[in-house]
């Protein structure tokens, strides 16, 4: 037992505490899944607040939701879905050991990710121009004027936008972290570190990216599509 484990020659990327690559790979994958579980609970706190306030202040939420740009929102959803495709194909390329294809797909993911952040920035800027950022300069007059049938109370509209900024802001922060991870992956893919035998970082980095995509898949209907029918 001891002799055979000592006899195993040093494998690229195998840490000393593991017996073999499979154990390391399984540990890394479980670790990422468990971490994503904690992330669900992190966003879960905000989803809980959202649920309760939407139940209390439906009209104010509807008015706030209508003021968001649905074209930009839908585009951003599509951008993220495209990025998820390039990630999934990237993992496949890594599995098959196609270095150039992997590099190309990782770069495409980075482009989509940054594109999402740019569009998000444009939307936030619109909110700034419309005085829809919660705080002393918040102004609900436009919401009241545009939605006379909802009889809006101006105070709780700030709750909608507080949640909007907290949720999209923390989601964007996760995107920034994701872009950082993918820069790291791109660098090592360029150096040719990933092989069909060892590509765990690409896989678990991909899991993180898909998760951030899933959060947006829920944020989109919850924030943009509350009450669009007139």
């Amino acid at each position: 037992m001891a002799d055979s484990s000592l006899a195993v020659e040093h494998q690229e990327g195998l840490d000393h505490q593991f017996v073999d690559r499979e154990q390391q790979r399984n540990a890394a994958s479980l670790g990422m899944w468990v971490f994503l579980g904690t992330e669900v609970m992190f966003f879960g706190g905000m989803f809980c607040a959202y649920l309760i306030y939407r139940y209390w202040y439906y009209n104010e939420f509807a008015a706030g939701s209508r003021s968001l740009d649905i074209v930009l929102g839908t585009t951003n959803t599509a951008v993220l879905i495209c990025s998820s495709l390039t990630v999934a194909l990237g993992v496949r390329a890594a599995q098959m050991g196609k270095r150039r294809l992997l590099l190309l797909l990782l770069l495409a993911t980075l482009v989509f990710g940054l594109g999402f952040l740019v569009i998000k920035g444009v939307e936030w800027h619109d909110k700034y121009v419309e005085h829809h950022i919660p705080g002393p300069s918040f102004n609900a007059e436009e919401l009241i004027r545009k939605n006379p049938e909802l009889h809006i109370d101006p105070a709780p509209t700030q709750i909608y936008f507080s949640l909007y900024f907290a949720m999209t802001g923390l989601h964007a922060l996760h995107m920034v972290v994701g872009v950082g991870i993918f820069c790291f992956l791109t660098y090592y893919a360029w150096k040719g570190r990933y092989t069909p035998e060892y590509h765990t970082p690409v896989e678990i980095g991909g899991l993180y990216w898909h998760f951030v995509d899933i959060i947006w898949i829920y944020l989109f209907p919850l924030l943009y599509l509350i009450d669009r029918k007139r």
């Binding site: 879905i81 495209c82 495709l85 194909l89 496949r92 989109f220 599509l225």
Partner: peptide, 24 residues
């Protein structure tokens, strides 16, 4: 690759559907 692209196409379709149904 075909499977991945198929899933991607479905996801895009669902996005368009959910955005349009919101107006009904």
């Amino acid at each position: 690759t075909k499977l991945y692209v198929g899933i991607w196409a479905t996801l895009i379709c669902l996005t368009v559907i959910t955005a349009s149904v919101a107006f009904v």
